[in-house]
């Protein structure tokens, strides 16, 4: 097996002095979608933010791209992202007072942005390019947030709960876009909707109480009702917004 694209060793993170992630260790394989799972409030979002340096963190985070290894824990957020790491935050975080076009333009990191690719994935955004992002629906904002990440050519995508609070039809649209993106780039995905996880994920990491408690192929985890109940506190077949078995 090839080297992981991202290695996290003993990552701890704090928000306002409170420990939220403690000694987390895991790898993200260089291909496929790795799902980062766990109940609400166990530190999944904080792990991602810690990797990006958006919150105070300690520990080793190594990023391997193009044959060289870079220690992310020594870099500031903007440098980390410039290495080719796309980020889709929880709650979308679009700039509500900027137009759709401005949100996308702001995110362009290279002189050769993939505007057509984003336009094909989300035709709705093209139609609304002069609309203020704050006036978009939740689903449209999510597409804009994804579009901001996908307009660049990335070597890794960090995607945090992209289907949270969305209607089922939008969920499948978002999932399809992610599946399309994942063809060319590895993804670390935080996701509560197990239907989406089942559809996209190749590998899985489970966090509990700020620590990693399980890693392995996604299918193996999803087929184990007992593990799902224990780690995620839900029945695999009944979770997710309107998902049915």
């Amino acid at each position: 097996m090839s080297d992981p694209i991202l290695s996290v060793r003993g990552l701890s993170a704090r928000i306002a002095g409170q420990q939220v992630v403690e000694d987390v260790t895991f790898d993200v394989p260089a291909t496929g979608v790795t799902a980062l799972l766990g109940r609400n409030g166990v530190g999944k979002t904080s792990t991602i933010k810690g990797v990006l340096g958006l919150i105070e963190r300690r520990g080793e985070v190594t990023f391997r791209a193009g044959g060289s290894a870079v220690r992310l824990d020594r870099l500031r957020t903007h440098r980390i992202v410039q290495l080719g790491i796309g980020y889709v935050p929880e709650d979308r975080e679009v700039f509500s007072k900027l137009t759709v076009a401005e949100n996308l333009r702001l995110a362009e990191r290279s002189s050769d942005p993939r505007r057509e690719f984003v336009a094909e994935l989300f035709p709705d955004l093209v139609a609304r390019s002069n609309q203020l992002a704050g006036t978009l629906s939740g689903g449209q904002q999510q597409m804009l947030s994804l579009g901001r990440a996908l307009i660049n050519t990335n070597t890794l995508l960090l995607v945090d709960e992209p289907t949270k609070g969305l209607a089922p039809i939008i969920v499948s649209e978002v999932a399809a876009a992610l599946a399309e993106a994942a063809k060319t780039v590895p993804v670390l995905l935080v996701e509560q909707n197990l239907q989406v996880v089942r559809q996209l994920a190749t590998d899985s990491i489970v966090i509990e109480g700020g620590r990693v408690v399980h890693t392995g192929p996604a299918a193996q985890l999803l087929d184990d009702e007992d593990m799902i109940r224990r780690f995620l506190g839900v029945h695999g077949e009944t979770t997710g917004a309107g998902a049915t078995a």
Binding site: T77, V81, Y87, F95, K97, L106
Partner: peptide, 21 residues
């Protein structure tokens, strides 16, 4: 100007887009 307007609203997201705010 774009960076400033975005930064007034959400500074950390601007850095998360790879911009040295």
């Amino acid at each position: 100007g774009l960076i400033i307007r975005a930064g007034v609203e959400n500074r950390s997201m601007v850095t998360a887009l790879g911009i040295d705010v």
